[in-house]
Every structure is written in structure tokens, then in C-alpha cells.
Simulated scan of single mutants.
Amino acid sequence: MYIPWLQSQYQKGAIIASFCTGTFLFGASGLLNGKLATTHVDACSRFSAAFPSVILKPDQVVTVDGRFYTSGGSTSTFHLLLRLVQKYCGNEMVIRIAKIFAIDLDRYSQSYFGTFVPSRNHKDELVKKVQENLETRFHEIGSLEDIMKDIPSSRRNFARRFKLATGIPPIEYLQNVRIESAKKQLEQTNQNINEIIDRTGYSDPKSFRKVFNKLVGMSPMEYREKFNVR
């Protein structure tokens, strides 16, 4: 019912917008194939799996591609609406509305709202065993060779098998587990950064900060300032 209606509205020249996981309905319409889109940061992997033809931008708060608008998690709706106001009413009105409703206009990324939740929704028992090992021993595992110990498979075949089951390579999985641990420590403790780096298994602070910035979209100190409420 809704999908034919969306398709009909687009054919009539309408601009179509979605927010949060409403992008799934949008994706099911086929209208987003080959187009830019975003959705709730924690739903991005599921969206990519369901709609591989859509050019998903997981970190972006809002995407605009022709007559298609999408936004991330619920409060990103404010930014989506401001983009529509900008289109029809101009920048002056956007600034006025942002001030009235106390909306920060400088939110360009939603990466730091994400939470890495390891997927176990597969039937590969060997991969599940490795996932459990990575999640409990992440602070002492240093390389893929460490992960491969006692695994009856070549490095190449196992990496392919792991990615097929979880959606990401084993080293990237390890990085996500480590950074998620660091985020929790930044949120809940006043430990200094070097202590946190050591507890997450990184020996090189520069490498830690590089990976943290890549996955979270800001520095560890910026993250602590935003989310530590102690």
C-alpha cells in the first residue's frame, strides 16, 4: 500500500524525505537505488544488507540526492527539516528557526552516537567461537595470527568466512570491540587516556587515536567531554 503510493508521488514530481529507520520503507520502494541515503547509525549494517544498491552514508546526519532526502536518528529530523526550509525559504529563515528551537547547525556526523553490537545472527559455530574470543581477550590479541591460533583454516579463507558471517573482517571487528570498550571507559570513568589505551590493548597511542577518530568521528577527549556525566 505505502510503497506504490511513494512511487506514485515521486512520479508526480514530489520531493520525498525519510528520517531514522523510515529509510527502510524508502529503500523497499526501489526509489533509492543508486542514490545517497543515511539512517539510524546502529541500523546501517542491516540497511546495507537489505538494500545493497543504495549508496549508504552511515556517518552523515542528512543526505540529499536530487528529490530524495534522508536523515539519521530521531533528532536528526531537525536537520532534515532545516534543509527543506533552506530549499524553500532560504538561509535567513534557517538561522532564525535554529535559534528559536536551539538547534546546533554544526552537527555533520552521527558516528559518535553509534554502539557496536556484535552480530551473532548466523550459523557458523567456528566464527561464533572466534567472536567470543575477540570480545573477551581483545586487550591481549595483537594480530590476525593471534586470532588464527588453533583454527583449522588458512588465513585467507578464514577472513572470508568471518566477513561472510559478521559483515566485517576480523581485524576490523577487533578494532570495533576495542574502541567500544574505550568509549565506555571514557563515559563512565575519569581514568586518563593512556590508562584507557593500555586497557584496550593498544601499545601505540597514535594508532589508538587514529582508529578512534575513524570509527567515532571525533577525538577521545572530545568524546569524553560530550558523554561523561560524572
Rank of each mutant, 00 (worst) to 15 (best):
residue 65 D to T: 12
residue 65 D to N: 13
residue 66 G to H: 12
residue 67 R to G: 07
residue 67 R to Y: 10
residue 67 R to Q: 14
residue 69 Y to A: 12
residue 70 T to Q: 10
residue 72 G to L: 11
residue 74 S to T: 15
residue 74 S to I: 15
residue 74 S to N: 13
residue 75 T to M: 11
residue 75 T to F: 09
residue 76 S to C: 15
residue 77 T to K: 08
residue 77 T to Q: 09
residue 78 F to S: 12
residue 79 H to F: 09
residue 81 L to I: 15
residue 81 L to Y: 11
residue 82 L to S: 10
residue 84 L to R: 03
residue 86 Q to T: 00
residue 86 Q to I: 02
residue 87 K to R: 13
residue 87 K to C: 01
residue 88 Y to E: 00
residue 89 C to M: 12
residue 91 N to L: 13
residue 91 N to I: 09
residue 94 V to G: 08
residue 94 V to H: 07
residue 95 I to K: 14
residue 96 R to I: 05
residue 97 I to P: 07
residue 97 I to N: 07
residue 98 A to W: 08
residue 98 A to R: 10
residue 100 I to T: 12
residue 100 I to S: 10
residue 100 I to W: 07
residue 101 F to L: 14
residue 102 A to C: 13
residue 102 A to M: 13
residue 103 I to K: 03
residue 104 D to G: 11
residue 105 L to D: 03
residue 105 L to V: 04
residue 106 D to Y: 11
residue 108 Y to I: 11
residue 108 Y to G: 12
residue 109 S to P: 01
residue 109 S to I: 00
residue 110 Q to I: 14
residue 111 S to R: 15
residue 112 Y to G: 00
residue 112 Y to C: 02
residue 112 Y to I: 01
residue 113 F to P: 00
residue 114 G to N: 04
residue 114 G to P: 00
residue 114 G to L: 02
residue 116 F to M: 01
residue 116 F to D: 01
residue 117 V to D: 03
residue 118 P to I: 05
residue 118 P to A: 09
residue 118 P to H: 08
residue 119 S to N: 14
residue 119 S to G: 10
residue 119 S to T: 15
residue 120 R to I: 06
residue 120 R to V: 07
residue 121 N to G: 01
residue 124 D to R: 03
residue 124 D to Q: 05
residue 125 E to K: 14
residue 126 L to N: 06
residue 126 L to E: 10
residue 128 K to G: 09
residue 128 K to I: 14
residue 129 K to F: 08
residue 129 K to P: 03
residue 130 V to Q: 06
residue 130 V to I: 15
residue 131 Q to R: 09
residue 132 E to D: 15
residue 133 N to K: 15
residue 134 L to V: 08
residue 134 L to W: 05
residue 134 L to G: 04
residue 135 E to C: 11
residue 136 T to Q: 10
residue 138 F to N: 01
residue 138 F to Q: 00
residue 139 H to D: 14
residue 139 H to S: 15
residue 139 H to W: 13
residue 142 G to R: 13
residue 142 G to P: 03
residue 143 S to L: 05
residue 144 L to C: 04
residue 145 E to C: 05
residue 146 D to T: 06
residue 146 D to A: 07
residue 147 I to E: 00
residue 149 K to Q: 12
residue 150 D to G: 02
residue 151 I to C: 09
residue 156 R to Y: 13
residue 156 R to P: 02
residue 157 N to S: 10
residue 157 N to H: 09
residue 158 F to R: 02
residue 160 R to N: 06
residue 160 R to M: 05
residue 161 R to F: 03
residue 161 R to T: 07
residue 161 R to M: 06
residue 162 F to A: 04
residue 162 F to Q: 04
residue 163 K to E: 14
residue 164 L to S: 06
residue 164 L to T: 05
residue 164 L to I: 00
residue 164 L to Q: 08
residue 165 A to D: 01
residue 168 I to C: 03
residue 168 I to D: 01
residue 168 I to M: 09
residue 169 P to V: 08
residue 169 P to K: 08
residue 169 P to F: 06
residue 170 P to H: 04
residue 170 P to V: 04
residue 171 I to Y: 00
residue 171 I to V: 13
residue 174 L to P: 04
residue 174 L to C: 01
residue 176 N to W: 08
residue 177 V to T: 10
residue 177 V to F: 05
residue 178 R to A: 04
residue 180 E to G: 02
residue 180 E to K: 00
residue 182 A to P: 12
residue 183 K to A: 06
residue 183 K to F: 06
residue 184 K to C: 01
residue 184 K to F: 03
residue 186 L to E: 03
residue 186 L to V: 05
